[in-house]
């Protein structure tokens, strides 16, 4: 059963399939109609926790658990300010400490632990790292810029391709028209028989087609549609350059503790299989072979023949 529902009016998704749950910064959900009712004035208090909320801040609840929603919200906000990258730190430990600090802040805010103190801490951090924060934001926008550039390039490419195609089509049309006219002219004024003229024309046309095709510029593909250059994958995804030792097969050696066993291949040539019950068709279908049972019986027969736990003492015989 879907027990997701509005905590205020107790409507559930089951009873009202079109129920839309909204959530605000405090992380408590409300259904759409309750929001309409409570926030006529545009702002009010959350019925659950009394936090002052603005109507415009209500968003559609994406996660079933409103707490997750709240946490995501807070995280987004925090990460806007705490935007240092791994490159900004001298070593991994510092970076990890920094990440942990972020997690602590998010957790505290999401669970209402030491909210005041945490906020103070954030403010202090903001003050101390003003420059860094704006730099970080700029950096992020650089990434976006790059993406935009790529998209633009792609658009341009497709545009030129389209133009070329259009031109081609036009030219072909013109050619066809010209050819037709020439044919009619010739039919009108030439001395040759009509049949010959048509045959010659056809031949010329075919020749031209081939010429056009071969003259079409065949641009070699230099990049994928995503804008990644061919053969440039390494720059994009650094493959960890680890030297792994290649696995080497070494045959298993089991101490049989007995006389040497015949090799599997020799079983047939030595005539062992003639003394074993032949496999039935159904057994063969199951992938079973006489060789296996024969080999196993022989192995069991030889294995342990030379097994002497202690030097044989004269114990009773």
């Amino acid at each position: 059963m879907d027990d997701q529902g509005c905590p205020r009016c107790k409507t559930t998704k089951y009873r009202n399939p079109s129920l839309k749950l909204l959530v605000n910064i405090c992380g408590h959900s409300l259904c759409e109609s309750c929001v309409d009712l409570l926030f006529i004035k545009g702002s009010g208090a959350c019925p659950e926790c009394g936090t002052a909320l603005r109507r415009s801040n209500f968003r559609l609840q994406l996660f079933e658990d409103p707490y997750v929603e709240k946490e995501v919200d807070i995280r987004k906000k925090i990460l806007r300010d705490f935007n240092k990258k791994e490159d900004d730190f001298n070593n991994l430990n510092d970076y990890n400490d920094y990440l942990e600090m972020i997690e602590t802040i998010v957790f505290n805010l999401a669970n209402n632990i030491d909210v005041e103190e945490t906020r103070k801490m954030i403010d202090q951090y903001k003050k101390e790292n003003k420059e860094q924060i704006s730099k970080g934001r700029a950096k992020m926008s650089k990434d976006e810029e790059y993406l935009e550039m790529l998209i633009g390039q792609e658009k341009q490419d497709s545009e030129t391709r389209r133009q070329i195609e259009e031109e081609d089509e036009k030219r072909q049309k013109n050619n066809k028209l010209k050819n037709k006219e020439a044919l009619i002219d010739e039919l009108m004024f030439s001395d040759m028989s009509a049949k010959d003229i048509i045959a010659i024309h056809k031949h010329d046309l075919e020749k031209e087609d081939i010429e056009i095709e071969s003259s079409l510029p065949q641009q070699p593909a230099t990049q994928f549609s995503t804008g990644i250059r061919l053969g440039a994958q390494n720059a994009f995804l650094p493959v960890p350059d680890e030297k792994i030792e290649i696995y080497k097969y070494s045959p298993i050696h089991v101490d049989l503790c007995g006389p040497e066993l015949q090799e599997e291949e020799k079983l047939i040539s030595l005539g062992y299989l003639r003394n074993v019950r032949a496999t039935s068709d159904s057994e063969k279908a199951g992938g079973f072979d006489t060789k296996f049972s024969c080999q196993r019986a022989l192995q069991d027969a030889f294995c342990g023949l030379f097994y002497f736990p202690v030097a044989p003492q004269m114990d009773q015989s």
């Binding site: 005539g271 062992y272 003639r274 003394n275 024969c294 019986a297 022989l298 069991d300 027969a301 294995c303």
Partner: peptide, 18 residues
């Protein structure tokens, strides 16, 4: 448990063959 029955089978096969 390794019983002597299969080894007996093996020995008899070996005996018949060799």
């Amino acid at each position: 448990v390794h019983n002597p029955y299969r080894p007996l089978e093996g020995l008899i096969i070996d005996l018949k063959t060799r």
